[in-house]
Amino acid sequence: MDDNTEPLLVIDDLAVEFRTDEGVVKAVDGAAFTIDRGEIVGVVGESGSGKSVTAMSILGLVKSGRRVRGAIRFRGRDLGTLPAKELRSIRGAEIAMIFQDPMTALNPVVTIGRQIVEALRLHDKRLSKAAARDRAIELLALVGMPDAAARFKQFPHEFSGGMRQRAMIAMAIANGPSLLIADEPTTALDVTIQAQVLDLLKVAQQETQAATLLITHDLGVVAELADRVVVMYAGRVVEQGDVTTVFTAPRHPYTVGLLESLPRLDRDVDELHPIPGSPPSLLAPPPGCPFHPRCPLARDRCRTERPELRVVGNGTAVHRTACHFAEELAAVPTEVTR
């Protein structure tokens, strides 16, 4: 059943906590964003921003964490309240995942071919072995695997890093998912291989028309691939909007800081402007705005009152920021626009 009044995926005020010896880690603290059918949404943030935990929560893959608040609705159904069996039938079929490290995501003692066949037949019980085999080889060829029929019989360790990532993409798109979650899909790869895999992700997206949630710390990858971008900091969404708007007219001081601190490949930059300090501890996040200890705009209100996401700008695309003083950023040229 498809509820057409709502986006494909809605993440609504999600909060996930981990209990540790030192206390409760608020890894995700009120994250909210949506993904429409067929669009590519990039979620960016540094280590500890909560981007991966948010992504893993969608498929209920955060084992030790506890969802304390919020909902994750896929086609109108709350994935958090689904019985395990139903969630299993969605995983790998309607929603598929591409992990950062294919070596740990693939089973080392099963051939690549059998793993894809298994993924296919798990969700389509009527598919014969021979038909699944043909389809698997077709998929391997689609992801640019030379000599797919021979590769079908090989084990993951016989593949290079780039080839393993291709195999994992083949497996992810095997059942024609409507949502692909790619968690740092190119981070472990060398740059020439990364270029191949980024091209392939575009192909896979066009082929399946799947919406894609791209989790990455690499702003270049987002600029290259995403339609919209969600910026996370300390477990919260601090800014979101279409990719060009957020990169050229950022309205959150953290986004501005991220873009300013990047060295550029395409031009000489006299001096990098790092964000002072380091990200806050999630055991005891600062009150008010989590970015205030590092923010050049911070004043009393920021220390006490938590800014909620609100619409900024006058663009037609919805651009939101969680900053009390976002309007003051309008006059500041950024490294990207400079």
Binding site: A195, G220, A223, E224, T244, F247, T248, L259, V336
Partner: peptide, 11 residues
């Protein structure tokens, strides 16, 4: 040419 550049206008 392989390095992604953080400027969506260059896409």
């Amino acid at each position: 040419s392989s390095v992604p550049v953080p400027d969506p206008r260059l896409r």
